[in-house]
Structure formats: C-alpha cells, structure tokens
Design a binder for these strands. Sequence first.
RNA 1: GCCCCCGUAGCUCAGUGGACAGAGCAGGAGCCUUCUAAGCUCUUGGUCGGAGGUUCGAAUCCUUCCGGGGGCGCCA
Length: 554
Amino acid sequence: MTSFPDAIEHAVRIALVAAAESGSLSPLGDVSFVVERARNREHGDWATNVALVAAKQAGVAPRDLAALVVEHLPDLEYLAATDIAGPGFINFTLASDWYLEVLRTAAMGGPDHARGDSKGKERIQVEFVSSNPNGPLHIGHGRGGVIGDVIARALDYAGHPVSREYYYNDAGVQMDRYAASLEALYLQALGKDAEFPEDGYHGSYVEDWAGELVAEHGDAFVDLADRRDRIRQWGLDRAMRNIEETLELARIPFDVWFSETSLHEGGDVARSIDVLRERGYVFEDQGAVWFRTTDFGDEKNRVLVKSDGEYTYIAPDVAYHRDKFERGFDRVINVWGADHHGYIPRMKAAVDALGYDPDRLEIVINQMVNVNRAGEPVRMSMRAGEFISFRDVLEEVGADATRYTLAAFSPDTTINFDLEAAKTQSMDNPVYYLQYAHARMCSLERFAREQGVERLPIDEVDLTRLTDQAERAVLRQADRLGEEIAEAAARRAPHRIATYGTDFATAFHRFYAECRVVTDDPAVTQARLWLIEASKSVIQAVLGVLGLSAPESM
RNA sequence: GCCCCCGUAGCUCAGUGGACAGAGCAGGAGCCUUCUAAGCUCUUGGUCGGAGGUUCGAAUCCUUCCGGGGGCGCCA
C-alpha cells in the first residue's frame, strides 16, 4: 500500500531529476526538503517546501521551480490534485479513495491498526519513578510515573521492545534514617525509652506504619540483637507495598523491580569501580576514592568511596548503569525530576567512562508539580510531615483525571495541579472530552442496534456515501494516529498524544453534530456505522496509550 | 557565580524553521418534540517577555538583557 509522506517525497525527487534531464533545470545535488501535513484544509493534505529550499541553488524563483516539479511529477496513486501556493509551496490533495482505505484499515485493525513495525527498532529500557522505599510517593513521583508510563506505552505502540524498570535504593543512608525513625517510634509506642533520631523522618506515615508494626509484631522485636535490621526489612516491605499499591491505582506497571542491595551483594559495585580504575578514571585523594568526571566535561570530580569507607550514591549508580548496558539495551531512558538535572553530566560521564556511548543514555527531566486546592497551595514538604501523597490524589481525583493532568503538559512545564479543578467534570478537564467521544461512539452503536439496524460486513457497504466534510475530517485525523504516537515516543513527549486525541475528538464531535448516523437511508447509516467503528479504533488507541479508561457510557 | 526549565489570548496550555499564531476555560450570541448538550456553531480577545542577529522565511535557531521556578554535598 502506498504510504505517505514517503511516496510524495520519492515522487518529488523523481520530478527534480526528470526536470533536469529535460533540460529545463540544471541538475541539483542532494536537496533536503520536507513533506508534511498541511495545517489548513485549503492547503490540501500534504505539502512540501522543496521549491523554497532549492530555489537559490537552482537559480530559479521558488514558484517557477515549484511549477517545474509539478510538471515532471510522476503519477501517484491516490493523488487528486497538486497546487502551488503562497511563496512556492506545493500542496497535494489526496483522493477520497485514500480516506476510505484509512477507514477500512482502522475499522478492521482495531486499536492496534497503526502500531509500528518492530523490525530494526531499538530495544529500550525506560526507568522511572525509582523512589526510595522509605515513604509514600508524592505527586512529583506521580508525574514522573505517568510520563515514563506513557513514553513506554507509546514506544511499545511504535514498535519498540520496551522494558519498564523501577530501581529502588534499599541500601544507603536514607534507608538507615528511615529504619531508625521507625525503630524509635516503635519503641516509644511500647513505652520504652527511645530517642527519635535528629535527622529522622517526620511524616505522619512513619507514625502510622510504626503503629502497624506494633500491631503486627507486638514487642517481639524489642529484645532482638538484630532489631534494627528486622525493622529495616519490615519498613522496606511496608513502603514497597504502599508504592506498588499506589502505582497499581495509577495503572503504572513495571517489568523489573531492581534492588540496589542486589548490586552490593553481587559485588557489582566494587567491580564497577575496578572497571573505572582499569580505564584510568579513578584516583585517591584525602582518603577518598574519586571518579575523574571532569575528563568528560563535568564541572568537578566526584567521590565514589568516602574517606570513612562508605560508598557515595554515585558508586551503586555507576554499577546499576553498567548493568543496564550489559543487559543489552540499545537505549536507556531515565525519567527524573528537575531537582536531579545537575546529576546528568555525572551519569553521562559514568556511562562514557565505562566504555559505552553516552548518547545511549537519555534523561527525560520533568519539572515540578505544585498542588493547589481551589487556588490555594497545598503544602508539599516531606519533612514538615503534612504532605499530600500521590495516592491521596489518585483516591480523591481518580486515576483518569490524575493521569490526564500529569500527562497532558510538556514535561518541561511546571504544573499547577488544582485538585478541585481536576475533580470538576467540566471542560477544565479535557479528559472527559476524550472519554465522552468514546462513550458517544458506543452509544450510537447501541442506539442503532436498538433500532434493529444490523451492521453489514464492510465489503457489502458503500463507503463512498461518506461525502460530508465532517466525515472526511474525522478520517483525516484518524490518518495521523500512527505517526503522532511514533512522534510522541521519539521525542519523549507524551503530551503530544493528549493534544492529538483532543484534535481527533473534536473532529468526531463535529461529525456527530453534523451528520445523523441512524437515518432513513440504510446505505448512509451503514457507511456511518463503519466510520464509527474506525473512530473507536483511533480513540481507544489514544486512551490506551495515555492509560485512560474508555467508558461505554457517561 | 555557574547549570537546567519556563515566559504565547484575561486564565491554563499546544505549536520548536514555513503559508493569515491554535485549543480549552472565562466573556458575548445561538443550537436539544429524532442517535448522550460532559456536545456543536458563531463571536470578543495576542507587541509570541524586551533588544539585536542568522535565514528566501523566526514564536521556533544564535547572542544578550529582564521576569518566574528549580539545582549546584565525601546527602540521595
């Protein structure tokens, strides 16, 4: 089957050569031009700027060059018209046959009809959330979670083998502080004398969980020699359970849960430092072991092993990234909050120093989320104790509206997440606009059935009865599905899918308003029922990649 | 001081080299005795933060300044 825009680009190149051979144009070298969808309907379906970019080299005015290209253009399937417009754009209008192909493909292929081919696609790991297992996820983790999840879903749809991974720091100092806090509260709850650690965790959840610990184990841990370790393990399990439950509520699945401790126990941390040392990037100074990241453009060198013999967080992270590449991923994407952006040069340096191309590690940074309630800021400090968790938000606002709010904006933009606005079932909340389109499609099909209208096999239906502009507009939008998701995946820009979904829903809602589906004309009714089937495929694909539910009625 | 993100309509944001800058909300005017009005149509509203530059062409790329947010540890 013909595929656009490739077919047009190919035809234009042929035309350039043909024009040169006919003597009306001096031969051009490699010309770099684009063929893209026209923004306005008056500009047809596809447009190329070839005449604008090549005019200077050809020594011909853009519009004249465009005319030469059009004149020598070979026959192209599905092409209905070419026009020269504006400063020298060539616009291509497709025949309605093309859109009936789009309809058949979408209607028969279901939501997966526009999935990309996996042939030759990079194997990609997406690592995200990766919150420390010492407390609930907050909204920032939630944003990273939704962004990583949608990127992974989009990559998968585009044809990439994808592995979704959660890395948890269950070793390290933060874990000690958390365990010590739990331990102190546990002992205090049992009436024992215990001092709360100065750098302990103050969240009210710590108190709640210490209470659970007492309820579960009573004073069984009090006199144990390995009390702290037992409590640490219990606390780890408790936190992980909370995190897993929250992610499940948010519909964010993972393929691999990777433990930092496993790196230490497997000797990978020490081994990775050895690798760096062998490659000449390690030195000792003031009793500490240093990684010469400045060799790779970092602003200063970084400590791997502190003078007290403890690893810094960098050491296991080096080991972890080495492990990722040893597992054979072509590309590794990490989704981090903006507060970690300064860490990128270090991590890139590590990958480089280990002998891997640092470009294979990509970091997607997402900006902060401010939580408001009816315009008033909600305090978000972990330390202050009172903070609204991601789970609280999911439970209050619902997974659909929460996910949409976190996915619909560019990761580069700071989000002001207003709980009241997100809960409102209005157009402040475009998630309903998308879902309503789906519910409407289902409702139309139900109504047809209730009226005794049976949809005939598509081969027996005259799709050429779809002649309304609104019908064609739906199919024009439907045609974009595959490339929009692929583009969103390639740019790591999940919000593009939400934008596209809104465009599609708009076209559908307009169709609904313009065209009555169940009519006195059975042929038209049949054709429109198939248009709805195709539309369902598209909207379900969009909702699926965004991880939103597709309600059959609202 | 250095680094990252943002600055586009009253508000929240799309648009990162193309053709008159878009959407939703808010404001104004219409559309339900036949398929869901969580919808549709029309309309008001913009020096794309400022100034230079590159280009046939700049909201988009470069420089610089201004404003807002975040980050710069032998913490993670």
